[in-house]
Structures are given as C-alpha cells and as structure tokens.
Write a protein that binds this DNA or RNA. Structure first.
Lengths: 267, 267
DNA sequence: GGCTGCGTTCTATTATTTAGAACGCCGTAT
DNA sequence: ATACGGCGTTCTAAATAATAGAACGCAGCC
C-alpha cells in the first residue's frame, strides 16, 4: 500500500519531531532502512520543499512548509486567533492553564493554550494529543457529537488511571450528564494528579468545533473549585462561540441536553 | 525520483489548501491522475493519519495531523508564543499590523501576527509567504545572514513593483544600510501601497532567527512616520531577543554593522 | 599514513504501482 | 417505474519505479 509514500511521511514525521538536523545513517538506523533508501527519499522531500540540507554538515532538517500547510488547514477555522482574548481573560480569572482543543478521531489536539503563571501547573504542548475520553475538553467535544457520542466508539476504551471511564455505556452516560450540565469535568482520568473543566464551543452554524477548558493540579482543582469555575469557563465558551457567529449558544446547548439527537442548527 | 511520494505530498497539499472536503474524481481532474491512482494514494494517506473520509459522502479532508507535525517543528523555536506580548505592545503603540516572520530560503513565512484595529490595514495570512527581498522583515533577515547576505543570492531578483530592488549588488548595499541602521524599511517594494519596517530578532546564541515588524498603507506609513516608529520596533525586537536569552543584542547588532562577517556569537 | 565513519553514487533485480475497464450504488430525469 | 449518468470502489495484467548492496570519495582521528 504505497510503501514509498508511507516511508516518506514517516521520515518527515521523525524529522519534524527531532530536536535538530539528522544524518542519513542516523535516520536509516531509526527507520530500519538502508542508507540509499533514506538518501533517495530525503532528496525527494527536499525537491518537494519539505526538507532542506542543513548548511555545511551533511544533515537534513525540516523547512517551514509543514507550517504553511498546517496554517491553511487551520485558517478555515480561525478559531485559535479568535479565542486568544477569551482565553487570556479566562487565564487571569482562574490562574490556571487554559486550553483550546479540537477533536481528531478519538483524540483531542491542543491548538492553543495560555500557560498558568502559577509555579505548579499542568503541562501540555500545542499540537499535542490526548485521548478524548479522559480529558475535559475531549469529553465536552465527544458529548456534542451528533448522536450523543462519536460514531465508532468501541465497547471499551484504554485505561490510564484508576479514574478513567473505560466502558462505552458508562461513557455515554457521562456525555449525557455533560450535556445536562453544559460542561465537562475531568478528575484525574488521564493523569492522576491533573484535573480539568471544559465547555463546548459552537461555530456560526451551531456545530461543535472546539472546546475551551482549564486544567491544573488536583490539589488546587478539587471538585468544589471546579464547580466554582464552571460558570466562567462556560461564559468564555459562549463568548467565543458568539464571536464565531453563533447567536444561540444557550439554546443549542439546551437542545442537546434535551436529548434531541440532531438539534436544529442555528447561528 | 519517488514519484509516489511526490504525488502523495502534492495531494496532501491540495487537500490542505482546499476550503473543504474533496471527491476522488475532483482530485483526479486537478492532479491529472486516474481515479484509481487517487483512490489508492488517499487510502495510504488515510492509513498514515493525514487524511480522513468525510462522514457519509464519499469525500476526503485533512485531519489535524499536519498541525501536530508543524507544531513540533515550531516548538523548538518557541519564538511565536514568546513574541506574543511584545507584538501586542507594538500593535497598541503603532496601531498597525504587527508581524513575526521567519526565513525559508529566499522567502519569509509569517508565523504570527497581530491585526491592526484600523479600518484600512495591510493584509497577510499566518503561514503565508512573501519574497524576502522586498518586504521589511525579509530584508532584515537577509541582512543578518552570515556573510552579509544569504548564500546563493541570484544576480537578479523578481520585480514586483516599480520600487522593488532587483539587482544583487544594490540589494547587498541595502543590507549594509539595514545593518547600519539596525532596522529595515520597505517602501512599496512588494505591494505598491504597503510600507513596512522591521528589526531582527536574535536567539540565545546571538543568531538571527526571526524578524518583527509593522506594516500598513503607504499613506499612513510615509518615511517620516516609519522613522518615528523605528525605535519602538527595534525596542520590541530587542526585548523579544532578550526574552529568548540573548543578553547582548545591541553589541551583536553593532558587530554586524561593523562589517564583521561572522561576529562572535554571544547570548 | 592508514583507518573508520560519514554522505553519495551506481546498477541489476525485484516488487511495486499503474492504467483501464468493470462493478455497485445512488439520485435524477425520463 | 425505469433508465441514465456520475460517483467511489474493485480488479488484474503490464510495466514502471523503487530497492538493496557494494563501491566511491571525503573527512577527521588514531
């Protein structure tokens, strides 16, 4: 199945995630390929503009072309830049790290964040991933997928801590409660010591596009603290949604909560 | 030369730059390939996680994997997020659009921007490109490449307006003046009606890594206005550089101005 | 001065991708 | 109700394109 393409993409991936330029033998070792194979593939990647030879020394590194492409993908959803100010506001209200996440399959990917100024804080990286079923932003996103859950949710999901919800039925119940409350909570279900709270962000068509949330150490974000912060997080999600052109945030959210499988969309 | 890889990357590129999901025949038409070929390649891209079938309808769209990779590439240079606050400050001081640009070959790529609040403003897109020799950020970046200019600068560069500097020697002279002044100016050399001003950003090792600049309509940014703004732009570049760990910004810049081809690097 | 590591080049062998037609599906127009 | 046209998908023989492995040139190092 187009192994050349797979190899090329994998090589690009390795190169993108490397801290610096890489040599041919180095890559050949990591990818279990012959040197000539790596060489040829790299030359193709260079010709396509994704990679460039690092000056002088015979090593290769990524260009910014990946960034260019990624920007095109993101630009049709200009959510991150629109979200920036609301996230800053949320950060100063809660003093916790603020995330904007989008769904990619059964994972969330963090597209923007504001770091908490506190010495102890939750860590995450822009572009990083987390399993959606055990983080607050992910649960918020899954809860608002059409049909009360994503298509193809397996019977059992991977466990990461003692608190991870792994059963599908249990998870669907959780989603229902997320829709009832209007926000999702994570109590150490992904990382033992990290809790979070998130709310759904709707676009101009009333469709769920992202989730905005806060997260921090479990000691600071006990359930009582989380519930106290819930209104401001929901406010931020609502404001952002309105900024994106959604004029009936509360109404759409209520329709989801009411159990309507496919609420009439409305911006 | 690995045509399969080229096709796959091209297809990914087209898909990334499309406004929405695309069908197979559609892509086959645009890429001049047979349907079966497109189909197979798409399946490979799906398997690799770069593309997903768009629900229901038989079309395909990009996942966020490209964003994930691009984020890894950018993360080793955490310049954009570090730059954010300085750029905001610059935006409120000048009321113009603020850019952060990096060099990619002989082009700049915009990695971050703060939009001016003025009704009339310069347009650009994050991830977008511009020829380095005729924009302020690009000239700043080129001027500080080792050797007083980039390697492989052709004798003559493409003209875009009547003011574009196209001759290599003339351009090298311009770079020298940029180094003398500590900032670069663009007077409608890329788009007739857009002017700009930019200064170099140095990293912890004293190496040029980005340029920060403002740009706006020529009527507002005449040369006098530009020169008035020069100090605040340079201040922003210096502050950002210091934030990145460069402790001797002025000294390094002066060494470049002095004509030292390769100043001693120092953070 | 020879050795070891690197990136690069070369070529016959081989597995891979390719083109093109046929298939099944669905909505539309007849 | 039915035939049509367009779509994504599948299949298979034919041939192109990628592969492995050794040889080469060039460093720096012992």
């Amino acid at each position: 199945m187009d192994s050349t393409l797979i190899k090329g993409l994998t090589m690009l991936e390795v190169l993108a995630k490397s801290p610096g330029p890489r040599g041919i033998s180095d890559l050949a070792g990591e990818l279990q390929l012959t040197k000539s194979n790596v060489h040829r593939t790299l030359q193709t990647l260079v010709a396509a503009g994704y990679v460039r030879p690092s000056e002088g020394t015979g090593t290769y590194e990524c260009t910014l072309k990946l960034f260019e492409l990624a920007s095109s993908v993101m630009s049709r959803l200009d959510v991150p830049s629109a979200a920036d100010s609301y996230m800053h506001a949320l950060a100063s209200e809660t003093n916790e790290t603020v995330h904007l996440a989008m769904l990619d399959g059964l994972e969330v990917i963090y597209v923007h964040k504001i770091e908490s100024q506190q010495p102890v804080r939750a860590y995450s990286a822009i572009g990083g991933r987390a399993p959606a079923h055990c983080v607050a932003t992910g649960k918020a996103l899954l809860a608002y997928q059409d049909g009360g859950g994503p298509t193809g949710l397996p019977d059992r999901l991977p466990r990461h801590t003692g608190r991870t919800i792994t059963g599908r039925d249990e998870l669907l119940g959780e989603f229902a409660s997320v829709r009832r409350q209007g926000y999702a909570i994570n109590r150490g279900e992904w990382r033992e010591s990290v809790c979070g709270l998130a709310a759904i962000v709707l676009d101009a068509a009333g469709r769920p596009t992202a989730a905005i949330g806060i997260s921090g150490p479990a000691e600071r974000l006990r359930v009582t603290a989380l519930r106290r912060y819930a209104p401001v997080v929901v406010d931020a999600a609502r404001s952002l949604s309105e900024r994106l052109g959604c004029t009936r945030y509360d109404q759409v959210v209520r329709e989801y909560a009411g159990g309507a499988k496919k609420p009439n969309k409305g911006g």
